[in-house]
């Protein structure tokens, strides 16, 4: 039995320790906002925060996470008004949307480290894949979010 606190709620997860956090979140906790894209830490669709750090949950076994604090896209803000979410709306970023939970979670963690990033910082810091190709708006949205967070 592994104890995970997901978005502030404690869950006792009765799964094998090699279970990737992604599947514990989606199939056991029942939160489906975190997405499966590749399963090998390549695409970032599954990005969540573990104890405040962005992690690709498809490649993090829950065995090492007993007692961890996990934040998923559903827990990012109570009202979808986190500055990154607001910036995403303003720039109309998502197309199909499948990658976007991961993009947003990656961007939130990234902006904590780089509150005023340059384009080059963003290019180096956000490596998630978007098959729909929303990068142009995504880049603008990260700058906008940085501005909103400053204000």
């Amino acid at each position: 039995m592994i104890t995970l606190t997901v978005n502030g709620t404690q869950h006792q997860v009765d799964l094998e320790p090699d279970t990737p956090l992604l599947w514990a979140i989606r199939d056991a906790v029942g939160l489906t906002g975190t997405k499966f894209g590749c399963g090998i830490a390549q695409c970032g669709a599954c990005t969540v925060h573990v104890n405040g750090q962005a992690m690709r949950s498809c490649s993090v076994p829950i065995g090492g996470l007993d007692g961890a604090n996990v934040t998923t896209i559903e827990g990012l803000s109570p009202d979808s008004k986190h500055p990154v979410q607001a910036a995403w709306l303003a720039e109309d970023v998502p197309q199909c949307g499948w990658c976007q939970s991961g993009q947003i979670m990656a961007a939130v963690a990234f902006l904590k480290q780089n509150p005023a990033p340059t384009d080059a910082d963003i290019d180096a810091g956000i490596t998630n894949i978007c098959r729909c190709g929303t990068y142009e708006r995504l880049r603008r949205a990260i700058h906008r979010a940085a501005d909103l967070m400053k204000a």
């Binding site: 109309d92 998502p94 499948w98």
Partner: peptide, 18 residues
């Protein structure tokens, strides 16, 4: 603005896999 976008920033949009 596309109507689907509000649900694609907070995990609410339901896809087949969900």
């Amino acid at each position: 603005p596309r109507v689907d976008v509000v649900h694609k920033i907070n995990g609410a949009a339901k896809f087949g896999m969900d």
